[in-house]
Every structure is written in C-alpha cells, then in structure tokens.
C-alpha cells in the first residue's frame, strides 16, 4: 500500500512532511455516532498515528440511516459502537492504531483519556459532555473541534487554547435544549457537512498549519440553503471560568455534572440536570408524540412510555427512568430526548 497517501501528499499544504506529522499524532474522539463514524473514517483513511474512540452506546437499526461505519449485521449483533467502529476502521487502514473504549465520557474518564493526546474531536450528542471537553481542553492545552447537527442544520467551531475563545465564552452556559436528533430528526447530508468541516480542521491541526485554521463559527442548513460564518474573536472573555485569567473549569466540577442515582429496589434511575430548567411541555410533548411514543402529562410532569422503560419528566428538568438500574442507559435515554 505504498501509494496510499499519494493524493494527500500531493496536496501542497500537506506534502510528505505533513504526512509524517499526521502519522505521529494521537487523536481522541468522544462519540461514535453519526459525527464519530464520519470523523473516525476520515482520520483513519488519512493515516493518523493513533485514534482513541470513546462511546457508551451500541448499534441500533435507527443509526444505519446516517452512521457510516455500521452495517445491518452490527445491528443484529448489537455490537457496542466503539467496537464495531474499530473493527471496520482496521479493515480500512491496518496501519492506524485504533483503540476502542466502551464507556461514558465523564470528566473523570476524560482526565484519564487525554494523556498524550494532540487533538480532541467532539462527536457527542449533548452539551454537558461538550462543556467538559471544553474545560479539559483548556486545562491540558489541547485543541478540540466542536461539531453538532439536527435536522438539516449543523455547525462547527475550532477551539485552540491560548489562541481562540472557548465554547464557554460563546455560549456562556449550557443552552436549554430545543431539539435533538431523536426529537427533530436528522438527515445524513447534514452529518457529512459537519464532518467535512471538522475533519478539514483536524488535518490543519495535525499538520500544524495554524495559519489555515478556521477562526469563525460556521453554521449551515443544507435544506434551507443557508451558510454563515461568524467571526468570534470578540467573544474571548478574560473572566471566562474555562479559559480566562483565573479558570476554575466549572464543568469538571462534580457540582455541575448531571446527577444520576439508582433508586434502590424500585428499578428506577433518577436524573437531575446540573441547573434547573424550564421545560416547554407542549412542544416537548408534541415532539415525543411525533416520535411515536405514548405521552401523558399534566402541568407538572410528562410521562413517556418507551419499549421497556417509562420516563417521567418534571418541568425543572429532573426525570425518573423506570425499568432500569443502569445509570449509563438512563443517562443515554435522558440526553437523547432532552439533549
């Protein structure tokens, strides 16, 4: 396979020197869903030295419409995504050191995983984990690339500690969630568009072409034909608790992390978001009904019947997931529906 990177080294901004740099780098990717499949495949084909893939989920039929590494057989086998991804990626490029980590990317776990890493790719599906990645990135001075999408709408931002504003400068706090892929749907072209932006930035960072790194926040809608690029240099906040003069890394703090507790003997997990929310029950209820769930409610709570679980959501964001004792499963269900 001598020739395998020839079209990439021919690209003047990479060249043979750039290829050597790519081969020497370690990328940590959090998430192996839609964005993770796409980014993982591009980095592997590009010949990165090591790729660590972290995911807590397994492959389901509803993933196949947009998650490019997985096949029908992976669904039949109910393979964990990180494992299924690693197996396909090794067939694609046996030269890349692929490590699959099947776990929930908690702040503690991130602290362990980040050692020796040159770049973090965000392929998560919720802001809680993203904000933890943002803090870890600042604490250890490792660049990361935010990417997200829902429906036909996607966005990306490259964060270089010491050079650019961080995600906390721009969002200020974790947004109250409107839509997730499980409530607003998602089409594969949106995913590919985000992946294209994230992986281009990844290659610039891996070859250390800092001049070329995108310094604006891009967002686009592939169905509504919108594309915009927002300069963010002004957003840099010297008082930011993640990247300012006196950082406290709030999203690594146990206080600010989603709490999940098994309610003993009740086969139920309680989830409490880090900050009180004001959920809009009418909108949420419609979205969940559109998804085919049976939803009942009153002004104080919504009850959602799922296959094997029942979810009860209070309007401050707290929820009970009945029918499970598994904290990770309960958190997954919660974040899928509420972001």
């Amino acid at each position: 396979m001598d020739d395998r990177y020839s079209r990439q080294t021919l690209f003047p901004s990479i060249g043979k020197e750039g290829q050597k740099k790519i081969r020497s780098k370690h990328v940590l990717m959090i998430g192996a869903g839609a964005l993770g499949s796409g980014n993982g495949e591009l980095l592997t084909r590009a010949g990165v030295g090591k790729l660590t893939i972290v995911d807590r989920d397994y492959v389901e039929a509803s993933n196949l419409q947009r998650q490019q590494l997985y096949t029908e057989q992976d669904v039949v086998d109910k393979l964990p995504k990180a494992a299924a991804a690693a197996s396909r990626l090794k067939e694609i490029n046996s030269e890349v050191n692929i490590e699959a980590v099947i776990t929930d990317a908690t702040p503690e776990k991130l602290e362990e995983l980040v050692k020796g890493v040159d770049l973090i790719i965000d392929a998560t599906d919720n802001f809680e984990t993203r904000m933890a990645i943002n803090d870890i990135s600042q604490k250890h001075q490792i660049p990361w690339i935010y990417g997200a999408c829902v429906g036909s709408f996607g966005m990306s931002l490259t964060i270089i500690p010491g050079k650019t504003p961080c995600l906390n400068c721009i969002l200020k706090k974790i947004p109250i969630q409107g839509m997730t892929c499980d409530t607003g749907g998602i089409i594969a072209p949106t995913v590919q568009m985000v992946v294209a932006h994230q992986s281009a930035e990844a290659m610039k960072i891996l070859v250390e072409d800092w001049e070329a790194v995108r310094t604006s926040f891009v967002s686009f809608d592939v169905w509504r034909n919108q594309y915009t690029s927002m300069k963010v240099v002004k957003a840099k906040d010297e008082n930011c608790l993640s990247c300012g003069q006196n950082p406290t890394y709030p999203y690594l703090d146990h206080e600010n992390i989603m709490k999940s507790t098994v309610l003993c003997g009740r086969d139920t997990v309680q989830i409490r978001p880090p900050k009180q929310q004001k959920l809009q029950f009418t909108v949420l209820s419609q979205q969940l009904k559109a998804l085919g769930y049976e939803v009942k409610g009153n002004p104080y709570l919504l009850s959602v019947e799922m296959n094997e679980q029942r979810l009860v959501i209070f309007n401050d964001g707290r929820a009970l997931i009945h029918g499970t004792n598994d904290l990770t499963q309960a958190k997954t269900i919660y974040q899928r529906l509420l972001g």
């Binding site: 802001f127 997200a148 409107g178």
Partner: peptide
Amino acid sequence: IAFIPPVSGG
C-alpha cells in the same frame, strides 16, 4: 443582525 440557534445533536 443574524440569529443562530446552537444545537447539540451528533
């Protein structure tokens, strides 16, 4: 002025 909603899917 442009309004852009942040999203969390992935």
